[in-house]
């Protein structure tokens, strides 16, 4: 019996790894967008220690 190069187990692992990778990338983009939105909003204030420099 010939061994199949790709078992269903491999496709499941691939879907898991791809999913986690995409989620991490999306999380990085989200945190960046959130940071930009926060620092460009009108009520943003630098911490006191930063403004003294």
């Amino acid at each position: 019996m010939a061994l199949k190069a790709e078992h269903e187990m491999h496709s499941r692992r691939r879907s898991r790894n791809t999913g986690v990778g995409l989620l991490l990338a999306a999380f990085v983009v989200l945190v960046l967008a959130l940071t930009v939105a926060k620092v460009t909003s009108g009520d943003f204030e630098l911490p006191r220690a930063e403004t003294l420099k």
Binding site: M9, R13, S15, R16, T18, G19
Partner: peptide, 14 residues
């Protein structure tokens, strides 16, 4: 047995 616990991404989402 080796196959058990090999969840796909969709299974975790479910």
């Amino acid at each position: 047995q080796a196959f058990e616990g090999e969840a796909s991404f969709g299974d975790y989402f479910a």
